[in-house]
Amino acid sequence: MVINLRKLPDKKYIMPGNAACPGCPETMGLRYVKMALGDNVVLVIPAGCSSVIQGISPYSGINAPILNIVFAAAASAATGMKAAFEAMGKDDVHVVVWAGDGGTGDIGFQALSGAAERDEDIIYICVDNEAYMNTGIQRSSLTPYGAWTTTTWKGKKEHKKNIPMILISHGVKYVATASVGYPTDFIEKLQRASKIKGFRYIHLLAPCPVGWRFDPALTAKVAQLAVETGLFPLYEYINGEFKLSPIAKRYKDPSKRKPIIEYLKLQGRYRHLLDKPEEIKKIEEYIENTWKLIETLEESFAPGKDRGKKIFDAL
């Protein structure tokens, strides 16, 4: 599927004059969600930058009906909302949770896991800027190894929690990773997800110029480099089939990947480790391990094969 940019809707899905910082990846992502799903969408947004981006009442900078809700309840509120729409005979409304990495991987995780296990008919998108940005750049469980935050002054000591893999283990219908650097890939994934009934999860990498300390002009470039260095593989898991996305396939071959230093050196949050080869090596090892896992999943969940057998036999 090739998306013709000229055919994408030119509506003001994000209202100019909102409260997002210049170069914000969250407003980028929200535009793509609406471009892909159209107007029959209700957003459920737990606390985070996207609550604030809306601006000051009685106006809103996001052109969609929104339920702003507490962290712990996003996935459950969406579950209830979907049930209410169904009871009203409005089966075609997409209820979409739009939550940060803190809201997804830490504070809202139990509700997310519950809704996934019950296979609720909602789309859950984690907009992952790898820290609690709205409250001033605190670490989350999705902050990567080595990154500075205001609560990890010397760089985080733990690796990033792998939420999409955790969702795959829930056995849900659809899991995908995407990056704001590749909007048409994200839009295609949303469109595919929208045709599936049941729980759908998309993990959107959203480099934040404020928290990652880079020039706001580079939001899209940094989001592309994360993929080009092999750090953030793009893939889809649909009804038991695992496949790498077309843009990410070539990075299976380590020689095709850009050196990770190109990604790190653009970001002030990694400044303290640029002259520490042993730290950079740890990140390179993480990339190797990520791809080993991907290869196992590709083999195990290949189309047409006895899906997931290898993995489920091992469990």
Binding site: M15, A19, S60, G61, N63
Partner: peptide, 17 residues
């Protein structure tokens, strides 16, 4: 419930930033 409606300039003319 307090309701906001989509409109440009929810925090003003951000061109001044």
């Amino acid at each position: 419930a307090p309701l906001s409606r989509p409109a440009p300039g929810s925090v003003g003319k951000t061109g001044s930033w």
